[in-house]
C-alpha cells in the first residue's frame, strides 16, 4: 500500500456560478483512518464529497484521492471507493437484488457472497422493489452497494439518517470491520455523538473552509473548558472576560459556557461574586462544535 493519504486536498474550491460551495479547502485524511467530517447544513460537506468523486468539477485547487488526481484519474478512484449518498435513489422497478448486482456488475466484480451476508445482517428482503422500501431500507441497499466490494475508501454522506438505532449499531459495526480490514472511512455527519464514538479523526467545516482538523482526542482538548456556575452570577458579571461562548439554555440558578480565555482572570472575577458551586470540565465534541460555529 502506498503512503499517500487517502484524501488530500489543496485549496480546493468549487463555485456554482457566483454561489460558494467550498473555498480553499485544505484537508488531509490518512489511510486507515476513521474520519468524521462535521459541519452544519450548507457548510460545503456534500460539495466537497461530490467534487472528490468527480460528480462536479472543481473551480480551482487540487485534490488526490487514494493517490489519484480527481480530475485525471477519476475512474481509478471510483474503482477503489464505495460511496453512500445522503439521499439514495435507484432506478424505478428495480428489485433490491437487481440494484445490488447492477452495482457489482458496474464494478465488474462478483460480490454475491458478501452481498448475501450483508443483506442478512441488515435484515433486507432482496425480492422487494427498491421504490417500495422505506428511506431506512433504501439506505441499507445503498450501504451494501457501497461496501460489498471491500473498497479501500468508504465515503459516506450523512449515513445514519433514516436508520433506526439498532440498524445504526449494525451499520457502524460493518464500518468498523471494514476499517479493521484496512479501509479508510470518511463520513460527514451532524450527529457529533457518533463522530465522537467512532472516529479517530475529525474536521470541522464552516462556510466552505476547514476550521479545524485533528484527532478527535485532541479536538476535545482544544483549551476551551466547559464552565458551569451555580449562584447569583449573571452574564453581565462576566462581560469583562473574553473567550466566552454560551452553549446551553441557562437555568435561573446556573450559568453554563465554554471558556477559552485565561482561567486566572475568570477565577478573579468569580471570587468577587456569590458563587455556590463551580465545575470546570472538558467540553463534549458537540459543545466544541457549537463553540466554533457560534463564535
Amino acid at each position: 500500500m502506498s503512503k499517500d493519504p487517502a484524501i488530500e486536498t489543496y485549496e480546493l474550491t468549487k463555485y456554482y456560478g457566483k454561489i460558494r460551495g467550498i473555498e480553499g479547502l485544505d484537508l488531509q485524511v490518512e489511510k486507515g483512518d476513521f474520519f468524521g467530517f462535521i459541519g452544519p447544513n450548507g457548510a460545503g460537506k456534500s460539495t466537497a464529497i461530490r467534487t472528490l468523486l468527480g460528480l462536479i468539477k472543481k473551480t480551482s485547487g487540487s485534490a488526490k484521492v487514494l493517490g489519484y488526481d480527481i480530475s485525471e484519474e477519476k475512474e481509478k478512484i471510483l474503482e477503489n471507493t464505495g460511496y453512500l449518498p445522503s439521499e439514495i435513489h435507484f432506478y424505478s422497478k428495480m428489485k433490491v437484488k437487481d440494484a445490488i448486482s447492477y452495482s457489482a456488475a458496474l464494478r465488474k466484480t462478483d460480490c454475491s457472497k458478501r452481498a448475501a451476508e450483508l443483506c442478512e445482517r441488515l435484515d433486507l428482503d432482496i425480492n422487494k422493489r427498491v421504490e417500495d422500501l422505506s428511506l431506512g431500507n433504501r439506505k441499507k441497499v445503498g450501504i451494501i452497494c457501497a461496501v460489498q466490494h471491500h473498497p479501500d475508501l468508504l465515503i459516506l454522506d450523512e449515513p445514519t439518517s433514516g436508520l433506526d438505532p439498532l440498524m445504526q449499531k449494525e451499520f457502524f459495526s460493518i464500518l468498523k470491520e471494514e476499517n479493521e480490514n484496512g479501509s479508510t472511512i470518511f463520513f460527514s455527519s451532524h450527529i457529533l455523538s457518533e463522530v465522537q464514538a467512532y472516529c479517530r479523526s475529525a474536521a470541522f467545516i464552516k462556510e466552505g473552509k476547514i476550521l479545524l482538523s485533528d484527532k478527535v482526542g485532541k479536538l476535545e482538548q482544544t483549551g476551551a473548558k466547559k464552565v458551569t456556575i451555580r449562584g447569583d452570577v449573571t452574564k453581565e458579571n462576566l462581560t469583562g472576560l473574553s473567550g466566552i461562548t454560551y452553549t446551553e439554555e441557562n437555568r435561573e440558578d446556573a450559568l453554563g459556557f465554554l471558556y477559552n480565555g485565561d482561567i486566572k482572570k475568570l477565577l478573579t472575577v468569580l471570587s468577587n461574586e456569590n458563587v455556590k458551586d463551580l465545575t470546570i470540565t472538558e467540553p463534549s465534541l458537540e459543545e466544541i462544535f457549537m463553540h466554533y460555529y457560534e463564535s
Binding site: R50, L53, G54, L55, K74, E75, K76, L78, E79, T81, Y83, P85, E87, I88, H89, F90, Y91, S92, S103, L106, R107, C145
Partner: peptide, 14 residues
C-alpha cells in the same frame, strides 16, 4: 431527473 446520476457515476464508469 431520477437522482440516479449519483448512483451511476460514483461507480467506475466514465
Amino acid at each position: 431527473h431520477g437522482h440516479t446520476a449519483e448512483f451511476l457515476f460514483t461507480h467506475p464508469v466514465s
